[in-house]
Design a protein around this nucleic acid. Structure first.
Lengths: 254, 254
DNA sequence: TAAATAGTGTCTCTAAGACATTATTTG
DNA sequence: CAAATAATGTCTTAGAGACACTATTTA
């Protein structure tokens, strides 16, 4: 981005004596995270509660975990995102991708602010959300058909909605849901996550065929036993990069 | 994003007396644009030349058009992008979407900086790039198979590369290339843009079938005459939103 | 009527959708 | 062996790929 602004209002010109001085007002810059998992047969997102202290905006409201960029500590945006992820979940390297950025004059009462949003997918087993820092509380919130139940701080409802849209649309033609499962899982588990995220049934043989054709999984020499026929366990060959399938499910949108 | 940073180094803590004071150092924030068109049978991108003045980084190098956010003038990130677009091209409302953001300590010698990148698609007919502001020059640069010929300022080569990747991958299953054409065009024109962007031939009947099935175009009551059989002219029914096709071209990646 | 480009038709192939059938475990 | 779930197979369908064929213009 770097370059000087080409047009200036009277006000901002006042704070900027000569080119290159960089004395004009800078927006607040932060990073927020949309961390998804699957719990109790539902897609869930990690939210933290805003502190109740005076001067803090949206006190007590639920919000996406995140915070301001620390220019001394964070080398890049992604490093900042990974640091916050580690602080909130203890997980070092889940699937992480950038979602986009939101910025404007009115989204935060403290001033013009912009946030760089990342979204992460992780298994829920054994992960206890940590509040930490100023956050009073951190908790998984299930996402129903109409989104989240509680009101969210700032413009986080819009951001979460965009994240869910992105996840749902990518799930149609990628292996992303596998990152929501624990390391070892069965094909039935995988089908179930697809159905949970998409909110509709998916075809069993179509899923198995595409997954096998993509050479996505490695068998582990073990099966999951239950009160009935045991199921073969698999693990992902690559836990960092999703696979892209050649077609979407249901091209005609049923 | 808004929230206070939860962990702090000794240095940044010094500049931050109490919670809510917001006195810590803020990164530079800007918006950059990747503006694509098709000219002379090639995909092209609009670049501006960095100023040669002392104190300006990357003097004389080609860069993506953009600049710092002006908190007095720009209400949102997208408004900032549209303002810069208007300044550089005179076009008010081309197809515009957010690409992502890049930020880090070392990408700009003037300090920790982040940029929000948008990409735009527009026809090239009648559009003369305008330098304006501090930019010494603005010009369309063709993108060959190996990208751009000239070296780019900052990390703009990486950003441009990401933009081309995004464009190419979306072109496989959307009507995006239509936004690179003038208001009226023939199906042969449309096929040609697809081939230019993808860098490979596309199937004629497959393209026509999917385009017609998507109900994307409206006939205009006119044909383009040449030294041979004239071709029917069409225009987009919707010049803002692309259409998503149910499959990609070449699922098997030829 | 020849050349050239616009536009349509046919046949094949891939992978999804629907759903039936077979396989393997426990009680 | 009955019940239950896992896994596979069969048939249909949508839409892309290849490529031939027809249509319409000008010179």
């Amino acid at each position: 981005m770097p370059r000087k602004a080409t047009t200036r209002t009277a006000i901002s010109a006042l704070t900027r004596a000569r080119p290159g001085s960089l004395t004009f007002e800078r927006p607040l810059s932060g990073v927020d995270l949309v961390i998804f998992t699957v719990r109790d047969d539902a897609l869930a997102v990690l939210l933290t509660r805003r502190p109740d202290q005076p001067g803090e905006p949206c006190p007590g409201q639920w919000a996406l975990p995140g915070g301001f960029i620390d220019v001394a500590q964070d080398a890049t945006l992604e490093a900042c995102a990974r640091r916050k992820l580690q602080e909130k979940t203890g997980i070092a390297s889940p699937y992480l991708e950038q979602l986009g950025s939101w910025g404007g004059r009115d989204r935060d009462p403290r001033g013009w602010s912009a946030t760089h949003v990342y979204f992460a997918l992780m298994p829920s087993d054994g992960i206890e959300p940590r509040a930490g820092g100023t956050a009073a509380d951190a908790r998984w919130h299930p996402i129903g058909d109409d989104g989240i139940r509680v009101p969210l701080a700032f413009d986080h409802a819009e951001i979460l909605s965009a994240a869910v849209d992105r996840l749902r649309s990518k799930v149609e033609y990628t292996s992303l849901p596998a990152f929501l499962l624990p390391e070892e899982f069965t094909l039935v588990d995988l089908q179930r996550v697809y159905e949970i995220v998409l909110g509709r049934p998916v075809n069993k043989s179509a899923l198995r065929t595409r997954v096998m054709a993509a050479d996505l999984l490695a068998e582990v020499p073990r099966q999951r036993s239950g009160p009935t026929r045991p199921a073969q366990l698999y693990r992902l060959k690559d836990r960092e990069h999703p696979v892209f399938f050649p077609r979407t499910f249901s091209p005609r949108g049923d």
